[in-house]
């Protein structure tokens, strides 16, 4: 047994995240943890299991499945849920399309990224969730930097950035009206480097696409996109084979990869520390649409 030890930044961030998770579990009636199989949601799920160990999680996980995933990630998702022996709900964009709730985009720039919002809000209503844990971090994007830890959503799932509840001293006001919900962000104050350092410290397994591998890719808007069956290419977009890895994992139609030979967590951590391009800048085509892209999607109920 160890006695008092010098605390590191990760210890403090971990303690804060667990405090937020326990607070939400105690205060909200039906929380759910949004789990995509991406590294942030893996860290989040790991923190949640630690928060209640050795007891089971008091809430399920939910994946909003666009149907345009990387197969490695779905494989990982199913393995992970079995490994921690918890419940997974899958909310499917395919089903939302089939039910006529949303219309699939067509053409070379088609993406199901926007469609996820409807599927997510429908699932929240169906299961009567009043809190969704998300792995968003304030260092990801300018709109996120202004969002609270317990971020209130009205009955339409909308975020009102001008009317947020103050959280002085980390005291969270968890009161809701029926039909409203919270997005709860335990990793708010983590950075991308913190996430990788924590993955290393805790020895977490990740989907293989986070590490260097050979893949057929093409270049679009200066970013390397995976050549998948469901992505229509524009004239001149030539497919080549490169050694790449992904920094984020999302809908395959709008998630780019970077050239890399980093094949271990240590090597990725080194690369991340030295990188001069931010994670969303490197890999999220969806944020490039306009200067206010993320803000607009968040206002409408996006993650």
């Amino acid at each position: 047994m160890s006695t008092l030890t010098e605390l590191g930044t990760l210890d403090v961030l971990e303690a804060e995240a667990v405090h937020i998770i326990r607070e939400c579990a105690a205060e909200c009636e039906r929380p759910v943890l949004l789990f995509s199989g991406g590294k942030d949601s893996i860290v989040l799920a790991h923190l949640a299991t630690k928060a209640f160990t050795p007891a089971a999680l008091p809430f399920p996980l939910m994946h909003v499945d666009t149907g345009h995933n990387f197969p490695e990630v779905i494989e990982y998702r199913d393995w992970y849920v079995q490994e921690i022996d918890e419940r997974l709900i899958v909310a499917s964009v395919e089903q939302s399309i089939a039910a006529g709730r949303v219309q699939d985009e067509t053409g070379p720039r088609a993406s199901r990224n926007r469609l996820q919002t409807t599927t997510l809000l429908d699932a929240i209503a169906e299961h009567q969730f009043d809190a969704c844990f998300g792995g968003a971090r304030r260092d990801e994007e300018r709109a996120r930097a202004k969002e609270r830890v317990f971020s209130h959503r009205d009955m339409f799932g909308q975020w009102d950035p001008r009317n947020q509840r103050p959280e002085p001293w980390g005291i969270y006001n968890t009161k809701l009206r029926k039909g409203e919900h919270f997005r709860v962000f335990p990793l708010s104050n983590w950075t991308e480097v913190d996430i990788w350092a924590y993955i290393q410290r805790e020895g977490l397994r990740l989907p293989s696409i986070y590490f260097a591998h050979e893949r057929q890719v093409f270049t679009r808007d200066g970013m390397l996109m995976a050549a998948a069956d469901f992505v229509e290419r524009l004239p001149g977009e030539e497919v080549v084979t490169e050694t790449v890895r992904f920094r984020t994992v999302g809908d395959a139609t709008c998630t780019a990869c970077t050239l890399s030979t980093a094949s271990t967590v240590e090597q990725v951590l080194d690369e991340t520390r030295e990188s001069d391009v931010s994670e969303r800048g490197a890999s999220r085509a969806d944020d490039r649409t306009s200067e206010a892209a993320m803000e607009d999607r968040k206002r409408g109920g996006y993650f």
Partner: peptide, 8 residues
């Protein structure tokens, strides 16, 4: 600036 932003 209309609200508190956090940076690390």
């Amino acid at each position: 600036t209309i609200d508190v932003a956090y940076r690390s």
